[in-house]
């Protein structure tokens, strides 16, 4: 994750003035936007009107064509990303569950190992070391 890969995103808080709320809500609903999309689109629309001087039809056509092509690419990229996010979230859930299960199993296996070692040690202590010696002897014989 770095700014070398992705352009920086600025988080911006916009207060919708009270006298604007109904009109804003109505437009967003009519266009099928989310309120966040509505804010971004209208801020950009206002900025374009304030900062871009009018251009000839050819220049406008070229800019519109380029924008339309970029929009198509962005929509496709967003679709691919959304699909990947869905799949990756499933992977994360599955892997987290597997790792949790492994942690429990590892703890059980370690406890079992300690128990077995202890039992062997007690047996060994109980008959003067012959049990372990015999067991070791049979293990080697079996191997």
């Amino acid at each position: 994750m770095s700014d070398y890969v992705f352009p920086r995103l600025e988080r911006v808080r916009v207060t919708v003035p009270e006298h604007l709320r109904e009109r804003f809500r109505a437009l967003v609903e009519e266009k099928g936007w989310t309120v966040e999309e509505g804010v971004k689109i209208l801020l950009a629309y206002g900025a374009d009107r304030m900062t871009v001087s009018s251009m000839g039809p050819d220049a406008a056509h070229n800019e519109w064509s380029a924008a339309r092509a970029e929009l198509a690419v962005l929509r496709h990229r967003a679709y691919i990303a959304d699909e990947a996010i869905r799949s990756l979230r499933l992977n994360v859930t599955g892997l987290e569950a597997s790792n949790r299960q492994f942690q429990r199993s590892l703890a059980d296996q370690r406890a079992r190992r300690d128990r077995l070692r202890e039992e062997l040690r007690r047996l060994d202590d109980g008959d003067g070391g012959t049990a372990q010696a015999r067991a070791g002897h049979r293990d080697r014989a079996a191997g």
Partner: peptide, 28 residues
């Protein structure tokens, strides 16, 4: 000109939405 303005404004929204989704994808 009207189509240009609308497309430019939609781009601003879509750029941010796409980058945000791709960031989440990379993090995941």
């Amino acid at each position: 000109e009207l189509k240009r303005r609308e497309a430019q404004a939609l781009l601003v929204s879509m750029r941010a939405r796409t980058i945000a989704a791709e960031k989440v994808m990379a993090e995941l």
